[in-house]
Amino acid sequence: MAKKIIQLSDVHFGDITFSHQLKSNLLNQLEEANPDLLIFAGDITASGFHHEYQEALEFVDELKSLTKTHWVPGNHDARNVGLVHFQNMISPRKFVHTDKNSNFTIIGLDSAEADVSHGQIGRDQMDWLKAELAKIPEDRAKVVTFHHHIIPIPQTGRERNILLDSGDLMHILTENGVDFVLNGHKHVPNVWMLNNMVVLNSGTATTGKLRGNMYASYNELEIKDGEVLVNLVKTETGSKKVMAHYSVEVRDESLLIQSYTHNSIHQV
């Protein structure tokens, strides 16, 4: 059964560069796309203040009226004790979503740390993640999402905001056969493939906090029988660019990404 998943992050309500026009464009595009699921990979606010969360609530409710949504916080959401508001007003800070019809499970983690740009998953969450991954059948796609990136992204400058415990997390993800990792944080969309695991970053969808020639954007994943297509969607116009295309099959009761195409969006 075909599924369409939106990967969205870094909308930053309260930021000086936040664009209400881009927000309106985004909502119109999502209504037209009619996705089956939306995964928000952190940073709904600029500074974690209560008034920013209140400003974001209408947007959150509109997204929830369009499709099923899941949310994890980002480092900006954790500023100024903002995770209290995130949990009370938006969502729990981690989740498990299973779609048996399309044969995938998505696990969400909280990588945010209070008042700093870097993040970490922590031992308790890692133990919880391992326990949840162990419950997933090998023939089902395993997807994990959290805000911070685990490997460097081109065109983002000096690396100083990576997860503090990225090595331990990478070990858990690869040892347990995770197929896709969805992140935000750096405002630059990107896709890597490492040890048969796709690491997919989304950009900022509604702000002018853009690096180089990048534009406001979000990711759209189309899951069909035997393939996954990843589109980069430009929020200003709704135009799409294919970032990646994968063929997927089940062999010996295990799900495998057999072939892939990556289309570069960077000029280094």
Rank of each mutant, 00 (worst) to 15 (best):
S117N: 15
S117Q: 14
G119P: 01
G119S: 02
Q120M: 14
Q120W: 07
I121A: 05
I121Q: 04
I121F: 05
I121G: 01
G122M: 01
G122V: 02
G122H: 00
G122Q: 00
R123L: 14
R123I: 13
R123P: 00
D124H: 07
Q125L: 05
Q125W: 03
Q125A: 03
K130N: 08
K130R: 13
E132C: 04
E132K: 13
L133F: 09
A134I: 06
K135D: 05
K135V: 02
K135N: 07
I136E: 02
I136H: 01
E138Q: 06
E138C: 02
E138L: 06
E138Y: 02
E138N: 07
D139Q: 07
D139I: 02
D139K: 03
R140A: 11
A141M: 12
A141V: 09
A141Y: 05
V143F: 15
V143P: 04
V144W: 08
T145P: 03
T145G: 06
T145V: 11
T145K: 05
F146I: 12
F146T: 09
H148E: 14
H149I: 13
H149K: 14
H149E: 14
I151C: 07
P152C: 07
I153S: 06
I153F: 06
I153A: 07
I153H: 05
P154V: 04
P154E: 12
P154K: 12
P154A: 10
P154N: 13
R158N: 13
E159D: 09
R160D: 13
R160E: 12
R160Y: 10
R160Q: 12
N161R: 12
N161A: 12
N161F: 12
I162M: 04
L163C: 04
